[in-house]
Simulated assay, not measured.
Amino acid sequence: MTHHHHHHDHHHAPQIQALPSLLRLSAVQRLAAAGSLSVLIWLAIFWAMQ
Rank of each mutant, 00 (worst) to 15 (best):
M1W: 14
M1T: 10
T2H: 14
T2I: 10
T2M: 10
T2E: 03
T2D: 03
H3V: 15
H3P: 11
H3R: 15
H3G: 11
H3F: 15
H4R: 04
H4E: 03
H4L: 07
H4F: 04
H4D: 07
H4K: 05
H5K: 04
H5D: 05
H6D: 06
H6L: 08
H6P: 01
H7M: 03
H7G: 01
H8N: 01
D9Y: 01
D9H: 06
D9Q: 05
D9F: 09
H10N: 11
H10C: 05
H10S: 11
H11Q: 13
H11C: 13
H12A: 09
H12S: 06
H12L: 12
H12C: 04
H12T: 05
A13Q: 13
P14W: 02
P14K: 01
I16L: 00
I16G: 00
Q17N: 14
Q17P: 02
Q17A: 15
Q17Y: 10
A18C: 06
A18D: 06
L19D: 02
L19P: 04
L19T: 02
L19V: 06
L19E: 02
P20I: 05
P20V: 04
P20Q: 08
P20A: 06
S21N: 07
S21L: 10
S21I: 05
S21D: 08
L22Y: 14
L23F: 07
L23T: 00
R24P: 03
R24C: 10
L25M: 12
S26M: 06
S26H: 09
A27F: 08
A27H: 05
V28K: 12
V28N: 08
V28W: 13
Q29S: 09
Q29H: 10
Q29K: 10
Q29D: 08
R30M: 09
R30V: 03
R30A: 09
R30P: 01
A32R: 13
A33M: 13
A33C: 12
A33W: 13
A33P: 03
A33L: 15
A34F: 12
A34S: 12
A34R: 07
A34E: 03
A34D: 00
G35E: 00
G35S: 00
G35Y: 03
G35W: 04
G35D: 01
S36G: 11
S36T: 08
S36I: 03
L37S: 08
L37P: 00
L37Q: 01
L37K: 01
L37G: 07
L37D: 02
S38H: 12
S38C: 09
S38E: 11
S38A: 15
S38T: 10
S38V: 11
L40E: 13
L40N: 13
I41D: 04
I41G: 07
I41R: 08
I41Q: 08
W42A: 10
W42T: 09
W42Y: 11
W42L: 14
L43P: 03
L43E: 11
A44K: 15
I45A: 04
I45V: 12
I45P: 01
F46I: 00
F46N: 00
W47C: 06
A48E: 11
M49I: 02
M49Y: 06
